[in-house]
Amino acid sequence: MSRLDIQHGVVEMAHGSGGRVSATLIDELFIRHFDNALLKQGNDSAQFEAPAGRMVMSTDAHVVSPLFFPGGDIGSLSVHGTINDVAMSGAKPLYLSASFILEEGFALAELESIVISMAAASREAGVPVITGDTKVVERGKGDGVFISTTGIGVVPDNVQISGDRAEAGDLILISGYIGDHGTAILSSREGLEFATTIVSDSAALHGLVAAMVEAAPEIHCLRDPTRGGLATTLNELSRQSAVGMQIREADIPVRAEVRGACELLGLDPLYIANEGKLVCICPAQSAEALLNVMQNYPLGSDAAIIGEVVSDNAHLVTMKTRFGGQRVVDWLAGEQLPRIC
């Protein structure tokens, strides 16, 4: 079988044809790097023993521009994103699947570095990619590479985490600094380039979640504030639980550089995406202990209690500003774009 010319080659239509060329790509790139026994079964599906208990399943499509950004790339992001979605039910993630849509002409060297980064993220997380698929679209009909990943996991018996369980009196925690991922992406976006030491916070949070549910299985809600940022996540949870929320600006961790970038571009850190943070809502009496657990875990070392759940028929999220005022923190309207006025 012919070898793949990773150094100089590009994705060709034949790589998605299902023929010999496809097989070479799968063997030399995907199986080689993802390297695990279930994937090597080589069937259209991977077979494994089902664990006892409730299972969760989540899927996430990943498109990001640029594909490589400070602190990560689309590969690691596609692993972290789905692991986190599974983990936000309190589950232990077990396996991932991955499907790639490649654009004709995309450099194989870049694809390999994405796959290597994906494999490293999955190995580090202990959640293997056990099945996958690859398709190729004509040049101009894709943006280099799109990756969809699906994850499954199993939830501990005593855990009941759901977005509709927030109750008045609960406290709201965030696991660390907000806005890092979105700021890192903006800094490398064409036309906006600015230099910063901020890197994406892209990370798998299931370890942190495991420690949290062990310490406080009574947690009501967990969610990762990705697109739309903290503001959008809190509004989703408020609506789902039919409650209001009151947060305090002064307690929300935001790095000076993220604030700086936001002032420059007219954006609000509350709406900037995160890929390695979680929002936790728990009964007030559990909050301090939970905060301790989070702060003792590397990915939660800057965790903070940022507000509380209140009863409110309008399901508004309101914020006490650092300045001393009070304002509504609304859903994001459209996409957040840099502004001049």
């Binding site: 309101t318 304002r327 609304d330 502004r339 006025c341």
Partner: peptide, 28 residues
């Protein structure tokens, strides 16, 4: 999300400002 008038578009337009920040007063 679905602006009809220009003042609802820009975040510093009077309508958008009323909508985003001002509803606290009336709704609560």
């Amino acid at each position: 999300e679905e602006p009809k008038g220009a003042c609802m578009v820009s975040s510093e337009g009077a309508c958008a400002a009323h909508y985003s920040y001002g509803r606290f007063k009336s709704e609560t």
